[in-house]
Design a protein around this nucleic acid. Structure first.
Lengths: 196, 196
DNA sequence: TGCAAACTTTGCAGTATGTGCAATGTTTAA
DNA sequence: TTAAACATTGCACATACTGCAAAGTTTGCA
């Protein structure tokens, strides 16, 4: 019921979240302005009001500070999807839209991030990695629902995740609309892509 | 007619290729044995018989030495594909199989590489990046052939490249067969994936 | 409230990656 | 044979990142 990441009573965790967010935003801003190579961890730390050593208590490497906080698939949504009976892609939409919406909440930050990652392979890689993790989860969930072979689930998951990636890229490039519309559109294309 | 990477008359280039390959193989072997973090560029250099400084003349960063040399789409094949009239996926097979075959030539090396990259996110990212470059080229080529919108070409290219990635992953995991069979199989699945 | 255990921040010293430059050596093409 | 082009190397330097131990905070419990 309660999102554990928001409802935090204790000071320690609230502080930790706040610091994480401060570093994250500081990093994005600086790197957007000056480029990845001209921004040092020292600079980020100074601007975020922490020591350089502390930076690495929060993020394992410089680039990690750029990634948006991960969104999670909710357990209920997963369960509903696994037992769903509507056409696969329809049920999938219900699973994935709520997952994707949080990324749409801070479009400015996300656009900056996408723009930065176009110019820097290391960052592009991170973005892609995030989708890869999603892939694996999705493959598991698909396997639960469809009882297909592992091979087939892997392929479907990879394709779906690709469609999402494309949808987000389009959403970031375009300058209007909700992220969910783009995902719907992508899934539609997925359905008809290779029916020639 | 001649593959410019193989038919090299001059000493300079032959040496360069040989050194590149030596470093590449040395790096894979060492890292496969000891893990990415316990192998330094100094170690690789010493084993490859070059100075540490020279290592960075050949590869911009340590991990780059692990990637297999890039295969290129041949110009003729591209042209043939763009003007092709068979169903898209059939023509595509002819374009892509020759591109993929070189990777299949050194399966041991490639398997090591995949294995290493499973355990190490940085490397996984590099692998994925390689596919991303391929994506972009493919999208261009598709656009030339189909006269579809840029959007649609991007999506198709992303999906096709995903299918290839899955095919290669399967090929590496399995222990028999030619890489091209796996690609054919993947494309088949692509055709029927979302026809429910 | 007060105190011990748990956790956080920081400084410091150290290792590794990666770059620019200039000296020295090798290959090329004429 | 020679001058221009290119390759290798050593050295000095900046930055990324880690382990450790000292000092400061927060917590839960008596």
């Amino acid at each position: 019921m309660f999102n554990s990441k928001v409802m935090m009573t204790n000071l320690r965790e609230r502080r930790r979240l706040r610091t994480t967010d401060t570093i994250h935003c500081t990093a994005i801003d600086l790197i957007y302005k000056y480029g990845l190579d001209d921004v040092t961890t020292e600079m980020i730390s100074k601007n975020a009001g922490i020591s350089p050593r502390t930076f690495f208590n929060y993020f394992p490497y410089k680039e990690a500070a750029l990634l948006p906080p991960e969104s999670e698939l909710s357990l209920e949504a997963v369960e509903k999807f696994v037992n769903g009976t509507a056409p696969l892609l329809d049920d999938l939409v219900d699973l994935i839209i709520p997952f994707a919406e949080p990324y749409g909440k801070d479009p400015i930050m996300l656009r900056k991030l996408f723009e930065i990652s176009e110019t820097h392979p290391k960052l592009l890689a991170l973005k892609v990695n995030a989708f890869h993790d999603f892939d694996k989860k999705l493959a598991m969930i698909l396997a639960l629902r469809t009882k297909d072979s592992e091979q087939r689930s892997d392929m479907m998951a990879a394709l779906i995740s690709t469609a999402m990636r494309v949808a987000m890229a389009r959403w970031v490039e375009g300058d209007s609309g909700r992220i969910s519309e783009y995902i719907l559109q992508s899934f539609q294309e997925l359905r008809t892509a290779f029916n020639d």
